[in-house]
Nucleic acid binder design. Structure first.
Lengths: 135, 135
DNA sequence: CCGCATCCCCTTCGATACTG
DNA sequence: CAGTATCGAAGGGGATGCGG
């Protein structure tokens, strides 16, 4: 049954490939920084440390849950630091670590490319969509 | 009822913010290139044009559906070109456009940063997870 | 003030089968 | 060879309420 073996081989190839992807540094980190809220949080913190509530106000689109979750993963990855002041009420300050700061130029590069080329992309989309309707 | 108005204001703030995000070039394009398969497809094509089946073999982890979908959006955004040769059987070639090629340095920058700093990130994770278990 | 836990929707993605 | 169509499972993310 050649069909079965072909399918089996495809599955095996996929597994192998995905295992490779899981250990690929570039891909892991791309996945991190491309998270919907990560770039916004890092950008906000690039101007200096902020309290949780400040971030919450600044990044109004994020739910509490997403903001906390994002900050946790960033802390875990050593990109931001978290300092708790056990006063009443509690105060928590977040700041970019050195590692986090070193990532900013990369984020800026993405941003720069985007702003330079967004018009081309938008034009391409319009032209593509036009072709679709006339078909 | 102050609670209600507070909630209402948060919702309004969120909507405004999300509307802003939807029109933000940097965010739109970050979302594009950060798609799981986009960087892989672009990297594969950076060595020269490839046929659909070649891409499918090279990027073994992607399902047919995802590969096609990815190629469609990239074509729509003007980052890759799609050329159909109506022979029997059909032959379709994909290639990077000039715009797509101009994006490669940015992708390379992300990759370079990742490879330089992955050890730091991994170390940070380990230390973070250690602290959690001992707590 | 900060954050965790629960519930629930709704999108996303893989598997499979079918067309030109 | 190069897709398209449909279905079902899985998980992201919001709303809400409680705890320190």
């Amino acid at each position: 049954m050649p069909t079965l073996t072909a399918t089996a081989r495809r599955n095996e190839a996929r597994e192998t490939y995905n295992a490779f992807l899981a250990t690929c540094p570039a891909h892991q980190l791309l996945a991190r920084i491309s998270d919907k809220w990560v770039s916004l949080v890092l950008s906000a913190l690039s101007n200096g440390p902020m309290r949780y509530s400040d971030l919450s106000r600044k990044i109004a689109g994020a739910s509490q849950k997403m903001l906390t979750q994002t900050l946790r993963t960033l802390e875990r990855d050593g990109l931001v630091s978290r300092e708790v002041t056990p006063s009443v009420p509690v105060r928590v300050d977040y700041a970019l670590t050195e590692l986090g700061a070193s990532l900013m130029p990369v984020i800026r590069a993405v941003k720069d490319w985007s702003e330079r080329n967004i018009t081309s992309v938008l034009a391409a989309r319009q032209s593509y969509d036009l072709g679709a309707t006339s078909r």
